[in-house]
């Protein structure tokens, strides 16, 4: 029998479980259309960016969205609700499992694949993007929050506008 060098680390399981629950709560809030709850998943100073993988591979940080504070996320949420014109739609995020890549003094580095489907008022569904969440998660007052969330998408030629946060 193979010898088990390191006993299974209960903490790692717990961390993965908690981060996956955070991801689910996050995407369900978006899929439920509760955009006003979206900024609450982030720390006050944070980075939220939706960036094409193609740009990143060239070292370009240009994103479809790029916000550097919770205040900017609040602005985006408010503007989407009150100062934007778009056809109604719903999103459906389908997540893979989350891998915990590192846990250190900066927080938890986590990676999760995501397929985001979008459905129009007429009921037509399209795949908006295939993407990966690259996250830095920290704990504050007993709750997990995103300090960084990068949505890195493969779908270079997006089939539609990105109205909602992803």
């Amino acid at each position: 029998m193979d010898q088990i060098d390191t006993p299974l680390d209960a903490d790692t399981h717990l961390i993965r479980h908690r981060v996956e629950q955070l991801q689910l709560d996050y995407v369900h809030a978006i899929d439920d259309g509760a955009i006003d709850r979206w900024p609450g998943f982030f720390t006050e100073r944070c980075l939220y960016a939706i960036i094409a993988r193609d740009n990143l591979e060239r070292g370009q940080e240009l994103g479809v969205m790029r916000f550097e504070s919770r205040a900017m996320l609040v602005d985006r949420a408010t503007a989407t609700q009150h100062a934007a014109v778009f056809a109604p739609r719903t999103l459906c995020h389908v997540l893979s499992g989350t891998s915990i890549e590192a846990v250190d003094e900066n927080g938890i580095r986590a990676r999760t694949n995501v397929a985001i489907y979008q459905t129009s008022a007429d009921g037509d569904t399209l795949l908006l993007m295939a993407a990966t969440y690259r996250d830095l998660v920290v704990e504050a007052d007993g709750a997990l929050l995103f300090k960084e969330k990068r949505v890195i998408y493969d779908t270079l030629r997006l089939p539609d506008s990105v109205v909602n946060p992803l």
Binding site: G63, M65, V85, V162
Partner: peptide, 24 residues
């Protein structure tokens, strides 16, 4: 330039209205 790009593009504060209106 990175920050103001939020105004433009597929999710742009300004241009997402345009893309939608063109499809309408």
């Amino acid at each position: 330039r990175l920050r103001q790009a939020n105004l433009m593009g597929s999710a742009g504060y300004v241009t997402l209205d345009d893309a939608e209106a063109l499809e309408f």
